[in-house]
Every structure is written in C-alpha cells, then in structure tokens.
C-alpha cells in the first residue's frame, strides 16, 4: 500500500527519468549550433536582402507602367517663341481658374498649317488640329480627383513661381516618359521619382506632406498652416492623446476636427 511519502518519491523518480534524456538533447543542440547558427543568420540576411531588393528595386518597376505622350513637345523652343513665359499657354482664365495643359484653341493660332519638319508637329496637325480632336496629354502633375488646388492662390496670391512645384519643365526639349501607377492611375511624379519618398528639391514630390512642409515653413505668411499630413497625423494621434478642445494645434475653422477646414483642399 502506498503511503503519501511513497507517492512523493515516485514522482521525484519520474522527474529524474524525464530530465535525463532532455539534458542529452541540449548537448546535441549545442553541437549542431556551431554549424547551423551561421546558416540561420545567412538565411536571415538572404531574406532581408531579397526583400530589400524586391521593395526598393523590383517593386517600383512593377508598380509603374511606362507610357509615351501622344506627341512630343519642346518646351524650350516654345518658351522662346512666346512673350509671357509659362503663362502664355498655361494661363489663368477670366474667372480666375487655371487652364492647365493648353487646348487646341491655344495651339491653332500658329499650327493651323504645318510649320516645320518635325514629325511630331506633322502628326499634331494631321491627327489633331485638322480633325479638331484634343490631344490626350498625360498630365504629370494631375492630382487625385479629391484634391482641390487653387493655382490662383499660389501664383497670384503667394507669388510663387511655377518651378517650385513643377520643376524646370519649361527647360525640357522633349517630354519624358509618363510613368503611370498601375494601382491608382496617377503619375509617378506625384509620389516622386524616389520610391523611398526622399527629395532634394521642392519639385521632386507633390504629396500632401510636401504641401504641409511648405505651409509650415512659411507659417508667417500663410493662412492655413495646420495641414495634418497622413504620417504626421498618425504620430500626433499616438503621442498627443488629448481631450477634445485642448488640442495643442489650437482651434481651426472646423468644429469637428478643431482644425482648419478639410474642404479647403479636399473635395
């Protein structure tokens, strides 16, 4: 008949039996590690490297498709021909709206007939002018449809020049390849050539972060400075959990967000 003590002894013996083989396994592992540890690190590095290659090099190649403009255009040549710089063709209409890419109506004054020998001009006159079809230009700076951007406020109001956002487009002799984002359908120029989102010049990117950056830097002269960028907002929301009404951003025009009104820029 077992007593309590016997039972206790049984258990401890069982435990000893179990511990035996475990210890030996540990020994085996240690032996293997010396050879396999390197492999694991190697695989880690392999994985890391492969995904970095995919993310930084292959992904952008897959993400964008290359499209050619319907016809080529020489900005340098045309800027020399006109009197009023960019605004000769990219002008403000009488009601203050911005015309964007010129339409046939602007081109037709000079190009009713073929002027030179450029094959692109011949194509332009034959395919578009004489058939009264508008050229389906691919617009590098076309923002998503929800974005409202007033050229008048920036060019007329803040006296900015075109280069600040559009770069030295006016100095190009031919139109570059239009890289279309396969997911969104917008140009690569919005996110910027650098897939990492880095920029050297103000015109390298046209995302909301870039609007916000400029608006913050020029806070003294600008009415709307409180533009919450997507990245910034995420951080703010984590770091800056405050009850409504006590936001460090102060009170903007909107009752809901206590910030400046979203609809100033978002349709």
């Amino acid at each position: 008949m077992h007593t309590l003590d016997d039972h206790a002894k049984d258990i401890s013996e069982d435990a000893a039996d179990e511990a035996g083989p475990d210890l030996s396994l540990e020994m085996n592992l240690k032996e293997q590690d010396t050879g396999a540890g390197g492999t694991i690190i190697l695989f880690f590095i392999l994985g890391l490297f492969a995904s970095l290659v995919v993310g930084w090099i292959i992904f952008p190649k897959l993400l964008y498709s290359n499209k050619k403009q319907p016809i080529d255009f020489n900005h340098v040549f045309h800027v020399e021909e006109v009197d009023n710089g960019c605004e000769s063709c990219h002008f403000f209409r009488a009601d203050g709206t911005f015309s964007g890419a010129p339409k046939l109506a602007q081109c037709i004054d000079c190009h009713e007939e073929i002027q030179g020998i450029s094959p692109d001009e011949i194509k332009f006159v034959e395919e578009y002018v004489s058939k009264e079809r508008e050229v389906p230009w691919l617009i590098y700076s076309r923002q998503p449809d929800c974005v409202f951007f007033s050229h008048a406020a920036h060019i007329k109001g803040a006296q900015m020049d075109c280069v600040t956002c559009h770069g030295h487009m006016g100095e190009s002799e031919s139109l570059k390849v239009y890289e279309e984002n396969r997911i969104t359908g917008y140009s690569r120029d919005i996110w910027g050539k650098s897939i990492g989102g880095f920029k050297k010049n103000t015109w390298d990117r046209m995302k909301m972060d870039d609007c916000a950056e400029c608006h913050r830097e020029n806070a003294a002269n600008i009415e709307i400075t409180d533009i919450p960028t997507p990245t910034q907002r995420l951080i703010d929301h984590i770091v800056n959990l405050v009850p409504p009404g006590t936001s460090t951003f102060g009170k903007g025009g909107s009752v809901q967000t206590e910030r400046d009104p979203c609809f100033a820029c978002h349709k």
Partner: peptide
Amino acid sequence: FVIGGAAGTALSP
C-alpha cells in the same frame, strides 16, 4: 529567411 524578409520588407518602401 521569413523573418529577414519581413524585416527587409518593413525597411523597404
């Protein structure tokens, strides 16, 4: 390899 891939993906855009 997967962990390395995940880390690399997170560090890629």
